[in-house]
Amino acid sequence: MDAAEDLFSERGFERVSVRDITEKADANVAAVNYHFGNREGLVEQVMARYINPINEERVARLDVLERRSGSKPVPLEELLDAFVRPFATQVRRSELSERMFYKLMGRIFGDEMPRLPDVVLRGFEVMLGRFRKAFAKALPEVSSEELLWRIHFTVGAMIHTMAHSETLNHLSNGDSGQPSMEVTLSRFIRYAAAGMREGVQIAEVAKPKGNQDEFLF
């Protein structure tokens, strides 16, 4: 698993063979079939190992926010924080470096995979269903169709940020700096909130209250 994750992060899922993985892991090809059934089974387990905990934490954070808000909508910035922050908390629990973790996330969502495996897709369906309702409650003026596209654009920006932050640093000759994860999250949330809220008239923009990690950890 560790060898597969390293290789998938660096090369992408379609460019890594079973032999590449077993050579790096100092194992034989039969071990992949024994433990995972085939290469596709190994890919599914790598995805599930990282994506399922993120989606579970997203839902857990949303549960906390909705209980606290009662019948009122959860502020948009807090919803976005609950949606993206689990990537930061899960990277701290991962054995991968931060760089490799985000590259792997970018590969999972950005590579041209036929579809997400069922073991991952089920969690996504639950999570996205919950967040779609919460975003709709926070932005009642936005139509259902428009809201789906805004969520889609937000997810796309998040994937690009994870997969290509090194590219930005290189192309800008270092002008983009080396921001901490908290700085990057703050920038992303401000940017995403502006796009999600575009055209909506509001009296006051709510700001996240305190450190969101205190709600769960």
Results as ranks from 00 to 15, higher is better:
R122P: 01
E141F: 08
M113F: 00
S97H: 05
L168G: 09
L148K: 12
S97K: 02
I159G: 05
Y102M: 05
L139C: 06
V126C: 06
L171R: 03
L121P: 01
R115M: 11
V84I: 13
N173H: 13
E125K: 07
E145V: 15
M105R: 06
L171Y: 06
M100T: 08
F101A: 00
D111N: 03
G123P: 02
R132D: 14
V120T: 08
E125D: 11
V84G: 02
E112A: 12
D81L: 14
S144G: 11
F124I: 08
E141W: 07
V126Y: 14
L121I: 00
G110E: 00
D175T: 10
E166H: 15
D111C: 01
A157T: 03
A136I: 08
F153N: 07
M162S: 11
L128W: 14
K103V: 01
F87K: 04
G129D: 09
G106E: 03
E112P: 05
M105T: 05
V126D: 14
S144H: 15
R107F: 00
V119L: 03
R99I: 06
M127E: 15
D175H: 10
E98C: 00
P117R: 07
E146Y: 10
D111M: 04
A163E: 15
E95K: 06
K133T: 13
G174P: 01
F109M: 09
R85D: 05
A136G: 12
R99M: 02
E146N: 10
I108P: 00
L168I: 14
F87S: 07
P140F: 14
N169T: 14
G129L: 08
F131Q: 09
S165N: 08
L80N: 05
V119A: 03
V142S: 02
I108G: 00
D81I: 13
Y102C: 01
S165G: 08
A88W: 15
L104M: 04
V91Y: 01
G156L: 09
